[in-house]
Amino acid sequence: MSVAPPRPKFPPLNGLRAFEAAARLGGFAAAAEELGVTPGAITAHVKALEDSLGAKLFARHARGVRLTALGERVLPGFTRAFDELGGAVQTLRAEAAPRTVHIATLPAIAQLWLSPRLPGLRAAAPGISVSITAMEAPPNLKRAPYDLSLFYRAAGAEGAVLEDVIFPVCAPSLAERLRRPEDLERVPCISDTTWAEDWRHWAEVAMPGRGFAPRGPVFSLYALAVEEAVNGAGVLIGHGALVARHLAAGTLVAPFGTRVTLPRVLSLWSARRLRPGSAAARVAEWLREG
Rank of each mutant, 00 (worst) to 15 (best):
V3E: 14
P6H: 14
P8F: 06
P12K: 10
E20W: 06
A22L: 06
G26S: 01
I42P: 01
A44N: 08
V46R: 05
G54R: 11
A55W: 07
A55N: 07
A62V: 14
T68R: 13
L70W: 02
L75G: 02
G77Q: 06
G87M: 07
L92T: 12
A94E: 15
E95M: 14
A96N: 14
A97L: 13
R99C: 11
V101Y: 10
H102E: 15
L106Q: 07
A110I: 06
L114T: 06
G120I: 07
P126A: 04
I128M: 09
I128S: 01
N140F: 03
N140W: 01
R143L: 03
D147L: 07
D147H: 14
F151D: 04
Y152C: 04
R153C: 04
G159S: 09
D164T: 07
F167K: 00
F167A: 15
P168L: 07
E176T: 14
E176L: 15
A196Y: 10
W199F: 10
R200G: 04
V205F: 09
M207W: 05
P214G: 10
V218C: 09
F219I: 06
F219N: 08
Y222T: 00
H239V: 03
G240L: 03
L247E: 06
L247G: 02
L247T: 05
A249C: 12
P255Q: 11
G257V: 14
S267G: 01
A271P: 04
R275T: 15
P276Q: 07
A279Q: 09
G290S: 15
